[in-house]
Design a binder for these strands. Structure first.
Lengths: 154, 154
DNA sequence: AAAACTTATTTGTCATGACAAGTAATTTCA
DNA sequence: TGAAATTACTTGTCATGACAAATAAGTTTT
């Protein structure tokens, strides 16, 4: 018999939300491990910024924040670390001095290619036994979740 | 035409792994917001520990770590905060003094019920437009991902 | 029984996310 | 034109996760 009084109790074992959180944590852990094994001194978060700068020639803090769903503060700090590591360069805009544009360096480009292999490997590990058809559904649903949550947070 | 030379490049826009990470971040943000709106002074991570202690009468650091997929260090710190907040109690085992067992307090129990409402609400927000059938597939797949990553990390 | 090992937990450090506050450059508009 | 508002970014603080090291209490071995 189901509980009539408390219908809105969440059972973690059956919660999609909770399993997304757990999976994210575990996938990141796998990614970290593979990066470490390959002696690549970069974090998954730094990687996503480096990735976008390898795809799009020049981006500002705000643009990176929008692409990565992170806030300015975090982007600011991560780009600073990437800059210190020599993976990206920062150029002040000459007309509007508030804006900085970031560019990937050659060192950065080399690293991106290596990290791609690690990202690919970690995806394969995580997605074993999951059919392409299911992967499609998951991807579609996760994109829907991003829309839903984004709308709510607006 | 697909790129023959670099087959193992990851496209973030199509990566399930990446979207799991993004969704986890956004869902947590929604949960935070709802908790804040309800003036509930607890974090999602603290909540998951409190949840298990409300379901299972007494648990050790190790048991909590296994249930939550976190490491001892994190559990140790989070339980300490919950203890200071008066939401849980710690009892040293008398036979083996290395072990501590945690119990939820009455204050903790009251909070759990309130947080359930928030967790329920945030699930509803995140899962809009996603059919029950799809939710089943996602949950099944995410559980598979936990198995895969857990195996790899062993 | 003492030394070596194992187990359970804690503490320290760094990276990141949330959130608030601060700074500096640019616009707006009275 | 100069004060107020806005924009773009930076810095500070706290919570958490990864990872290494430390601690303390048992257990095993010689």
């Amino acid at each position: 018999m189901t509980n009539i009084i408390c219908m809105d109790k969440v059972e973690l074992d059956k919660s999609v939300n909770h399993h997304i959180a757990l999976s994210a944590m575990m996938i990141k852990r796998v990614f970290y491990k593979i990066l470490n094994e390959n002696k690549l001194n970069i974090t998954p978060e730094q990687w996503s910024i480096l990735y976008y700068l390898s795809e799009i020639a020049s981006l500002t803090v705000s643009e990176l924040a929008e692409l990565t769903f992170k806030d300015f503060a975090n982007i600011s700090r991560i780009t600073h670390k990437l800059e210190v590591a020599g993976l990206i360069k920062k150029h002040k805009n000459s007309t509007d001095k508030r804006i900085s544009k970031f560019f990937i360096t050659d060192t950065g480009k080399k690293l991106v290619n290596q990290v791609h292999q690690c990202a690919y490997k970690s995806t394969n590990i995580a997605m074993q036994e999951i059919e392409p058809q299911e992967r499609e559904i998951i991807l579609k649903s996760l994109k829907q979740i991003l829309i839903n949550t984004n709308n709510y947070l607006k």
